[in-house]
């Protein structure tokens, strides 16, 4: 069975209202631009999005927020987005803020088949409310559950027809973790190559984790904070 899809519209065609999505990226770096555009076009609603950030007003997940497609965001940092703030304050949008390392590790746990992890992040803070605290070797840890997502949507630099993925620079971030964690993982890649074209030593995500792959197009790769040496 081929994993290859022609484009983002085909790859996301069965995402339904109320689905739980993981979306890779840190800020606007390494986000699945093509799939986000296709989800906006499809108009599915009541989505739960697990993503480190929520994009900016007119790019990334911000585009889905504009169309009021998101019911709940699970993120670590959501600044830089006025529409997000408006929906949050008006109560239209539910938001769960969790520490960044906890977010990453809850993805990792799902991908490694572990139901939960213990982490010290958030002990003694409002993040700990309602969570089991356990002491190991004199230090307190919180029990945090693995995520359960219907779809993981990731962006890689190169991928092959077997679904093997290679990420580039800091665009790697949450992408390989989420790729391992989705029930169905959809990967959009800048370059889709035949099996055998990638050195097996260099694969970051083995193809077993990737159910659908396509070559994306027209990447904008917007830079949030262009900072240059003087």
């Amino acid at each position: 069975m081929s994993k290859i899809f022609q484009n983002a519209e085909d790859a996301i065609a069965d995402i339904h209202d109320g689905a739980v999505l993981m979306l890779g990226g840190f800020g606007l770096c390494g986000i699945p631009e093509n799939c986000i555009t296709a989800i906006v076009k499809k108009g599915v609603k009541q989505l739960t999005c697990i993503s480190n950030n929520a994009g900016v007003d007119d790019f990334g997940i911000g585009l889905m927020l504009q169309q009021k497609q998101v019911k709940k965001m699970i993120s670590s940092y959501v600044g830089e987005n006025a529409e997000f703030e408006r929906q949050l304050l008006s109560g239209e949008l539910e938001v769960e803020l969790i520490p960044q390392g906890t977010l990453a590790t809850r993805c990792m746990a799902a991908g490694y088949g572990m139901p939960a992890i213990y982490t010290p992040a958030g002990v003694g803070t409002e993040v700990a409310e309602g969570k089991e605290v356990r002491n190991f070797n004199g230090k307190d840890y919180l029990l945090e559950m693995a995520f359960d997502a219907d779809f993981a949507i990731v962006k890689a630099w190169k991928g092959d027809t077997m679904g093997n993925l290679i990420f580039k620079d800091t665009a790697r971030n949450f992408n390989p973790l989420m790729a391992m964690a989705g029930k169905i993982t959809i990967a959009e890649v800048e370059h889709l190559v035949p099996a055998g074209a990638l050195d097996p030593n260099h694969i970051h995500t083995p193809g077993i984790y990737v159910q659908r792959i396509f070559e994306g197009k027209d990447y904008e790769k917007r830079i949030e904070q262009l900072t240059l040496s003087k």
Binding site: G27, W157, A171, L226, L228, S229
Partner: peptide, 20 residues
């Protein structure tokens, strides 16, 4: 350090989302 003009890469940022 931050890149020279023209050498910036959207795939290479720091935790403050600055090009590096």
């Amino acid at each position: 350090p931050f890149p020279q003009e023209g050498k910036q890469d959207a795939d290479l940022i720091n935790a403050g989302k600055q090009t590096i």
